[in-house]
Design a binder for these strands. Structure first.
Lengths: 170, 170
DNA sequence: ACACAAGCGGACTGGGCAGTCCACTTCGTG
DNA sequence: CACGAAGTGGACTGCCCAGTCCGCTTGTGT
């Protein structure tokens, strides 16, 4: 696995970008042909870099997870635990809303670090009395994801507000 | 369009039942072959009754909508507007959780009557001060559907509880 | 009992998809 | 420049699916 040739590297970059775009628009169901076309390469090139379509999806997901992780770490730096969680949640939701189809790609890999960071944010918010204690980090993830993904683009903010209100301690 | 022959009627019934089962398990993506097999019928028979797969999905959805409508009317008879809405929501959620895949089938047709009944329940609950006034009936539908459909089978109750708490007036 | 329409299902078509192959092109090095 | 390795893409395979066709079967009215 020696370093890639310069042209191959360029094509790989274009491929990942095109894939991110296409998956964002149509979800991971989008065809490999569509992605290759948008990247301006033959679809055989896709399979030279990624053994299967799933590997491509995973690669795109991994790239996007890095963005989310940055958000999480930024939030962890916030000393106000309640604010830390909500800012993280709103940030993630914003991304998911903008690139709807990517949510499914991301949730297929789910890096451990991101999970741990999110769990920590939840734990702290609960300790600070800003979040009901009968929910798990997974519950929060599922609820936020659900609120954003199954709402029209002009209503997801409202829906997220409702969910966040529901997550406040009684 | 004369009345169906007795055997044809029987097959049609089996077909709709099988379709409901299969769609409930695998969603509307399930193949027509799978349904025909479970109904003990050739798949050509499906297309003699329904011009396209979508028509079959619609037919199954319509049948299930009748159940939901019954629930809605029962709830409308409840003089306590807050209770009426929550009992309706819990009832619907229970059905959706039991037959996950059917949710997608149903939301493809969405009978007007059901919509109107649900909207009335929402309106009444808002008038009674039991529901926040900055949400529309569509918001409630989306939130409840989302909470149930994207939660593991042992957590959807908890998630629905959170959503319902979030829907209470502040 | 018989005739015939209504119903039937297996075989077929066509389209879309992931994944493979191979003759050709392009890059990088000596 | 020239040459081998790395890279490429169009053509190909095999699979799954919705929808069609047609010769055979079965229910029903007389």
């Amino acid at each position: 696995m020696s370093p890639l040739r310069a042209d191959a590297e360029r094509n790989l970059r274009r491929l990942l970008d095109a894939a991110a775009e296409v998956f964002a628009e149509h979800g991971p169901e989008a065809s490999v042909d569509e992605i290759a076309r948008r990247a301006g390469v033959g679809h055989a090139t896709v399979f030279r870099r990624f053994a299967t379509k799933d590997e491509l999806i995973a690669a795109v997901g991994q790239e996007r997870i890095r963005t989310l992780l940055a958000l999480a770490e930024q939030a962890l730096a916030n000393p106000d635990a309640g604010q830390a969680l909500t800012s993280f949640v709103w940030g993630i939701a914003e991304l998911h809303a903008r690139e709807r189809g990517l949510h499914e790609c991301i949730s297929r890999c789910e890096g451990q670090e991101l999970h741990r960071a999110a769990a920590e944010l939840v734990r702290r918010a609960q300790a600070a009395g800003e979040l009901r204690t009968d929910v798990t980090p997974e519950d929060v993830e599922a609820l936020v994801g659900a609120a954003v993904k199954s709402s029209p683009p002009d209503r997801w903010r409202q829906h997220l507000t409702v969910v966040l209100d529901g997550l406040k301690p009684r």
